[in-house]
Structures are given as structure tokens and as C-alpha cells.
Amino acid sequence: MPDTILVVVEQREGKLNRVSWETIAAGQAIAAATGWTLEAAVVGGSASTFAAEVAAKKLAKVYAVESPKLEPYTPDAFAAALKQFLTAKQPRLVLMPHTYQVRDFVPKLATAMGRAVISDCIGFKHENGKLLFTRQMFQGKFAADVSFTSAAPWFATFQNGSFRGDKAEAGASPAPIETVNVEIADIVIRNKPQEVFKEAKQAVDLTQAEIIVSVGRGIKEQKNIEMAKQLADALGGELAASRPICDSGWLPMDRQIGSSGQTVAPKLYLALGISGAIQHIVGMKGSRTIIAVNKDSEAPIFEIADFAIVGNLFDIVPPLTEEVTKAKAGSQT
């Protein structure tokens, strides 16, 4: 029997997480490179509801791993269910999206099986029959090619945006679906989760903004935010920030860009004093044009910038605001 790659897709609160299509695309690419068989699994209280949607993709098989104990999500139940399922199936490679939910249970699952997770990968390589997973290190300043040295199953998670979900190939005919019922004893589940909620009504929807001026630690002090605001106003854009700025209360949380905030893809993203930590980049790397101003020429933000300005933002921004204002006034007359 050939080796199998199993993609565990994510569903939350009765919805399939779109990032799952990216992981299926990753699985299809690895299957093409290795010749291994690709299968998928949906895990949840009523996983079979989502199985048909997944089975439309080019996959050899889709499993619906079900138990009423999987609703609501707990790491204990998910790890227990998947351990049972994977121990029986013995896939060579298990792929998942690197979501907050996966981060919550996959290290536990792998440890329970005596295996390792190569987490937050951005790609893979298949060199001389060896499978390598590429991941960022030191906040994106370096990349590492990492191999598994343990027995299978191997676990790898892919960072949001590493593969194109819309490139996940559809199958010629729907993949067969098998429902797998797992038994989870009550005593296994120790956490009692309450309803998922949003803190406050999101006042600004940054996803609709065409121009975003975003500030990071380089802005230094709260009073300097005004300078960035003036540039945003001059450009007719929205002001946003990286996490540390919102953590400090300098801007409200609903202006935060990144994995814990909003994911945006404006026409123009102007990053001021943002170093480009991975958690921020995943929230804005889809922007059409990225202009970055940073005094550190090695800041990871420059890796994804279309235009780079190495310099002090306090020198650059005021004349830029002035020029933009002039240009706008000029175009109106």
C-alpha cells in the first residue's frame, strides 16, 4: 500500500475554515511530488455535514471523524479522537493549517503519539527522496529546511497564505466518504469552554479600506501616532497598527492587523516602523503594493515590500504628508 498524506481540515462553529483549502492544495502538491496518496479528514460533532464539500476536491478519500463529544471544541477531545483515528490509519504525513485551534491541540496529539510537529511551515521541498519542510526562524529573518527524524506519522502545519486555496484541484468525481465514529470517555475532557464571543462591535472594517497606513513599535510614543494619522488622512486611507501598539492602548484593538486582528489586502499598505513579525505579515501580505519605512535595513518587512525606505520614519513621514497634500490639492484644481 502506498504511503498516505492525510489533511485534517478545520471546521469551527459549524463552518469550514477557508484556510483548509490551502492545506488541501499543499497536500496535493506534496502528493504530486512524492506519489503518495492524498486523503482528508473532517473532525467534529457532525463532521459528515462538511465531508461532501471537501470530497469535491481531488482526494482519494474523505473521512468524517465524529463524536458528540467533539462539540464544542476542546483540545482533550480532539487529541483523543485523532489519536484513535490516526493509530488505526497510520498515515505517513498529517497536514493541518497553523490556526489557533490547531496550535491548541496538535502538540498534545503528537506528544501523545510520541511524535513531533513541524509547525508554521511556509513550503516544502522534496530532495533526493527526502521531504523537507520550510519554516521561518527568528521572526522571518531566516528560513530553515526541517526534516523529520522520527517514525511516522509525521505532523506538519502550514502558515495561513502559504498555498493558494483557490488552486486546490477539484476531483473528476466526488471522493468516497467514510464516517468514523470515535469513542471519547467523559473523563478525558477536562476543560469546559463557554460560548465564543467578540469583545465589542468592530467599529472599523479595515478589510474594505483601499489604503492603509499602519504603525509599529518604531512610532515610539503614543503622541507620535498623530503624525501617522495625518498621513493616512492625506492619503484618504485608514490608520492601523501592529499588535504591540494596540496592546499598549495607543490605538483601539479593532485597528490591529495580523493573526489576532484583521486580515487585509488593500491597494496600498504603508508600513511605518513595523519590523514585520510573522504574526503581522500573515495579516497584510496579500496587499497589492507594500511600502515599508524602517530604520533597520534587515527588518523582515522589507522581504515583502515593493518599495523600501531605510530611514527614520520621523524624518520621512512629515514631508511625505506634505507632498501628498500638495499633490491632492494640485489634482483638484
Binding site: 523537507l132 531566516f142 515590500a305
Partner: peptide
Amino acid sequence: LQKIERLYVPQKTKKTE
């Protein structure tokens, strides 16, 4: 259980001006 085979400066995917 996992091994860093090599560490390197990432190849740029974007042309930066």
C-alpha cells in the same frame, strides 16, 4: 524528532525597489 537541515536567508519572492 525533527532536524534543521539548513538555515539560510530566505530568497526574496518580491522585487523590492
